[in-house]
Amino acid sequence: MAATITAEDPLTGEEIEIPADVEVGEIVDSPATGAELEVVSVDPITLEEAPELEEDWGE
């Protein structure tokens, strides 16, 4: 299994496990709520709730 690190879920305040190789800008799913969280810093590891899907996103 890939290495993991712990980070605080900004929505629940709980410690969650995320892949150790995440980088800034990556999106991880909150295991508790399923919400998308964005990695905004890796040192220290900081997560924020990811922006809502917008109309002109994706392909």
């Binding site: 980088e23 800034v24 800008g25 990556e26 999106i27 964005e38 990695v39 990811a50």
Partner: peptide, 13 residues
Amino acid sequence: LYSRIRRDEKLLL
């Protein structure tokens, strides 16, 4: 250029 690093961008990086 990015606003989200999806798995696609991660593969490229």
